[in-house]
């Protein structure tokens, strides 16, 4: 598989949110405004790339040689949480404006299952290091894309006459379902 195929696959065909249904919590929670959706998306993309690289190293230099694949989940969660913490401290010191923009979202990313999913899938597909990083980039951009799409529609929805029982999360889930169906159209592209 070429790098481009991997990128396209993670971005559109196997979009983490809309096709694999991972990371639904931030997808619903942070998709009310396009601005914050972009912030969350970029922060997640960043963490995904870093986490993909870190977990690849853990998998092939610690877990496999010592015959400990059953510790995969635990060690991956450990490394992702530490990475996020480190990135947060680093940003706070070096770029206060970026920290302010991403501030609330960074800690939330620790518990985003899309990142753990990405790490595990990268291992299952036995990607090389470069491929894993590209996979992480594609997954993050796909997450950002899904978030911005939903946020854009939800911003418009503020002025729509929605039936009372569907207001709020109800209509958002219907929208997400429709978006997911639309993304089904990418199947077969790769």
């Amino acid at each position: 598989m070429s790098l481009f195929t991997i990128l396209l696959s993670a971005l559109l065909v196997n979009n983490f949110v809309l096709v694999r249904f991972l990371g639904i919590c931030p997808f619903m929670g942070v998709s009310k405004q396009v601005d914050s959706a972009i912030g969350m998306g970029l922060a997640t993309t960043f963490v995904m790339v870093v986490a993909a690289a870190a977990t690849w190293l853990i998998q092939w230099f610690i877990l496999e040689p010592f015959g400990l694949p059953f510790l995969q989940n635990m060690s991956f969660i450990l490394v992702i949480a530490s990475m996020v913490q480190l990135v947060e401290m680093f940003l706070h010191k070096t770029s206060p404006s970026l920290y302010r923009a991403m501030g609330i979202f960074l800690p939330l990313i620790t518990t985003n299952c899309a990142i753990l999913g990405l790490a595990i899938m990268g291992v299952q597909n036995s990607y090389t290091f470069i491929e894993t990083v590209v996979f992480g980039l594609g997954g993050g951009l796909g997450f950002t894309l899904a978030l911005i799409l939903l946020a854009g529609i939800r911003e418009e929805l503020q002025f729509a006459d929605i039936p009372k029982p569907l207001r709020g999360a109800g209509i958002a889930f219907i929208l997400a379902g429709l978006l997911s169906l639309a993304f089904g159209g990418f199947a077969g592209l790769v």
Binding site: L71, S82, H92
Partner: peptide, 23 residues
Amino acid sequence: VSMGSMAALFALGLAVASKKFAV
């Protein structure tokens, strides 16, 4: 041993980082 040392390494890293990047 492997998990313990990994955790210890991360903890150490974070401790150093929190001092170094303290705001």
